[in-house]
Design a protein around this nucleic acid. Structure first.
Length: 432
RNA sequence: GUCCGGAUAGUGUAGUGGCCUAUCAUGAGGGCCUGUCGAGCCCCCGACCCGGGUUCAAAUCCCGGUCCGGACGCCA
């Protein structure tokens, strides 16, 4: 039962060697006197060939009783064979059925018949057996791993902040209320306040990759109610510095995926276009002018509409930053320019299709922060745990949050955000 | 939340009033076949989302519901 090799670790050069492979019955092709059993594991496919005359009856009986997607262990001899896929086949000595799969299957795993996304998500355990779906999640792993490597190398300390929080007073998006013993609590919408606390806390540079929860009833291909956010916060640097970190990170991730994930990109039929450095910078003023010149009129101080994002994205054609936003449409913690306080040191990082990230230099002055909270129509009393950290030595600092799913879907040209999350949570789906 | 579109075998589909005892593929069951690789061939099984209405006649038209897709809105 114990595997000696993944399917792709076996080579024709191992001719006559004995191996044990494990996996799922992908297909059985019975030609009469000869039969082919294709076993699929995480890495690929292996062909097991049965010459019926030369095979023990026990092995033949086992194969006869096999259903597609059953889990098997096959021990046999490697046969170098030019006609076989991968140049080798396994001549079995013994086949063990570890788990018998019922039929009919909830969906096809071989690529012969499509399934709707909804069907696939209902049967996600089977959907991820498909090479295509598996490729997406293997790339997701590469992305997350190399982000951790990149930030760690750059001096960032990985932290974990609470997802269960007490107050709904952070403003903006709607929160999911939950019951916390005898009190009401909420699922956190962002690690923003906590990562800032750690600037006062002296960690200097922190990052977190964790779920965020938004109770908005948005129902689009680029929104989720539970998403994964990549957040950084760093002291003694400004918004321009963290923008440089962000664009370098994105460029690095693309390069790593192109190299390490080449096999999976091929499975997906994706030719990665690596975004060039530096990303273009356009001001908010220029952004609304571009939108206006193309028929989407916005008042100064409006947030960008979906249509405006598309127009500007098409106009720019590659990753870009929008900088110098009106202070009033950015959160209270974005730092206003000293000489022009109606603008702030906030930025959005955009892919032509959608927003990927937003960030800013933060307000680190207690009085200004308190004023800004009030100006945004919020009550500073609800922010005591947060504001307190600004009273006893808070360094200037900056940071951003980057949507993992949006990074992935734009990278891979995937239309629906649900494709890049194993078990997406949206307006309707809560299971599995 | 608003608007638009949709729901037919396990899966993906064709079918816009009678020719539907519902198409095709895949799949399941059975059979033939010693080099398949989306194997091939033969037989067979399996479906009109739910409720109401119109009509001589409804998968098809109308109304309500449920579910799904898309756009927009909402969105640190």
């Amino acid at each position: 039962m114990k595997r000696t090799h993944y399917s792709t670790q076996i080579t024709p050069g191992m001719d006559k060697g004995t191996v044990t492979i494990t996996g799922w019955v992908h297909e059985i092709r019975d030609l009469g006197g000869i039969a082919f059993l294709v076993v699929r594991d995480r890495e690929g496919l292996a062909q097991v060939t049965l010459f019926k005359k030369a095979m023990e009856q026990e092995v033949l009986d086992t194969v006869k009783g096999l259903s597609r997607e059953s889990v098997v262990s096959v021990t046999g001899t490697i046969q170098k064979m030019a006609q076989a896929p991968n140049g080798y086949e396994v001549i079995p000595k013994g086949i063990t059925v570890l788990s018998h799969a019922a039929s009919p299957l909830p969906m096809d795993t071989t690529g012969k018949v499509d399934a709707d996304l909804d069907t696939r998500l209902d049967a996600r355990f089977m959907d991820t057996r498909r090479p295509r779906t598996q490729a997406i999640f293997r790339i997701r792993h590469i992305v997350l791993r190399c982000i951790r490597e990149f930030l760690s190398k750059d001096g960032f300390v990985e932290i974990t902040t609470p997802k269960v929080v007490a107050t709904a007073t952070e403003g903006g998006t709607a929160l999911f209320p939950i019951t916390y013993f005898e009190r009401e609590a909420f699922l956190n919408q962002s690690p923003q306040l906590f990562k800032q606390l750690m600037m006062s806390g002296g960690l200097d540079r922190v990052y977190e990759i964790a779920p965020i929860f938004r109770a908005e009833e948005h129902d689009t291909r680029r929104h989720l109610n539970e998403a994964s956010s990549i957040d950084i916060e760093a002291s003694f640097i400004d918004q321009k510095d963290v923008m440089a970190i962000l664009e370098n990170l994105v460029n690095h991730v693309y390069n790593e995926v192109a190299e390490i994930g080449a096999k999976y990109l091929e499975t997906l039929g994706v030719e990665l276009e690596i975004p060039e450095l530096p990303f273009k910078r356009i001001t908010y003023d220029k952004a609304i002018n571009i939108a206006g010149a193309n028929g989407e009129d916005l008042e100064w101080g409006d947030d960008l509409s979906t249509e405006a994002e598309h127009i500007i994205g098409k106009n720019v054609g590659e990753h870009y930053f929008i900088v110098d936003w009106p202070t009033k449409i950015k959160p209270f913690y974005a730092m206003p320019y000293e000489d022009k306080p109606e603008l702030c040191k906030a930025f959005d990082m955009m892919h032509p299709r959608m927003e990927l990230s937003s960030g800013a230099q933060r307000v680190h002055n207690y009085d200004l922060l308190k004023t800004r909270i009030e100006e945004q129509g919020l009550n500073p009393d609800g922010f005591e745990f947060y504001l307190n950290a600004f009273r006893y030595g808070m360094p200037p600092h900056s940071g951003w949050g980057l949507g993992t799913e949006r990074l992935l879907m734009t990278m891979l040209g995937i239309e629906n955000i649900r494709e890049v999350v194993l078990f997406p949570r949206d307006r309707r789906r809560l299971s599995p």
